[in-house]
Amino acid sequence: MRCQPNAWRQVYNWLNSEQACLLCDGRCAGPLPICSPCKAELPWLEQQCRICALPLPAAAMVCGECQNKPPYFDHVQTPWHYGFPVDALITRFKHHGKWPLGRLLGSLLSHHLQNAFAQGLPRADLLLPVPLGKQRLRQRGFNQAGMLADWLHTHLQLPSQNHLLRRARETDAQQDLDAAARQRNLRNAFALTDPSRVKHKHVALVDDVLTTGATANSLARLLKKAGARRVDVYCLARTPKPGGFCPQ
């Protein structure tokens, strides 16, 4: 029947414009499954270190740690500090396989990056997800950083290489260690399968959360030694420093 395609188009449009919010189950007017009030209440990171995105009490500053010992990476771009409800959403995505939540966060991150590019942030030549060890990959069943990189590749039209970085050896879980132990834990932990692929390139590491920055710094050091021109970090959230400034 001639009316069938039109009827399906109406149903298709309704499905795309009447999604349920994944946070409150209310109706969404936009293309993403999050309503405007819930989106506004996410812990947006506004005042931060210009290099590592550490939450700070004033904008356009460089934190003391980056001044005293500049990291190997050049810039961290992230929309949120690690607070509620983003912390809970990342945990459910990462440890409980709630992929729709990860995809929502990845889509919001891509929009954040598009705005940053429009305001002058240089676009990366290549996306590289932080690699997961084989044992942890078997336990979890997926690499959340790899999934984020795939979604950013689709939304931003940036090349992504999921297997260029690898874990050279198994390491302990970083969240169980203090800052000094994290550095020791990551010594010689990563390798590049083809160093020539990053030479003279602007590379962006993709991960879910930046805590002390030890993993990103170790990977950025490896990439810079291989000839990378610039290394940025694209992540979902940045944790405040323990005992330091914490956005409300």
Rank of each mutant, 00 (worst) to 15 (best):
S36C: 06
P122S: 12
R140A: 11
D232H: 12
L132I: 10
K225C: 05
A88Q: 15
V206F: 06
S17H: 14
W151D: 05
T215S: 07
R230S: 12
V86K: 10
K39C: 08
R221Y: 01
Q157K: 11
R136Q: 12
V86R: 09
A179W: 11
W80A: 08
S17E: 13
A189R: 03
F245S: 07
G213S: 01
D150F: 04
H163N: 14
V231E: 12
D74E: 09
S17L: 14
W14T: 04
A214P: 02
L108P: 03
G106T: 08
V233E: 01
V11N: 03
P57N: 12
G106F: 09
R229F: 04
Q10H: 11
N143I: 10
N6G: 14
G227Q: 09
D25P: 00
W80G: 07
D194Y: 05
P247L: 06
K199E: 13
D125N: 15
R27Y: 13
A59T: 08
H111R: 15
I34G: 02
G106Y: 10
K134G: 03
A191G: 02
R2D: 05
C52I: 01
F117T: 10
W8G: 01
W14P: 00
L104Q: 02
D25Q: 13
L22Q: 13
Q67S: 08
L126A: 12
V209D: 03
W99G: 00
R238W: 04
L236V: 02
L205F: 00
V206E: 03
C28P: 05
L42T: 04
V209F: 06
L104N: 01
N188I: 02
H112G: 05
L156G: 11
D125G: 12
C49V: 00
A29T: 12
A59G: 09
F84S: 12
P242M: 05
S218G: 12
L205N: 01
Q157N: 14
Q248C: 09
V130T: 14
A204K: 00
D194P: 02
K134A: 15
Q183M: 04
D87T: 13
G227E: 07
A20I: 02
L210D: 00
G213K: 00
S160W: 04
L22M: 13
A53I: 02
D25L: 07
T215M: 02
K241H: 14
H96Y: 14
V203C: 12
T78W: 00
Q161A: 11
P37I: 07
S110D: 09
L105Q: 11
C52G: 01
F190G: 04
R27H: 14
Q119E: 15
I34P: 02
N185Y: 09
R9N: 10
T215R: 02
R182I: 03
R169E: 06
A228K: 10
N6W: 15
L137T: 03
D150M: 08
L192P: 11
L128F: 13
A220Q: 00
G243C: 10
K134I: 05
P129C: 06
H112C: 07
M1P: 10
S160Y: 02
P37S: 09
G213M: 00
R229A: 15
C49I: 01
K69C: 13
P31N: 07
L22V: 10
N6E: 14
V198N: 08
V130S: 06
L210N: 00
L105P: 08
P79A: 09
A149F: 07
G97D: 04
Q48G: 00
R123W: 05
A204S: 13
L101Y: 11
A116E: 15
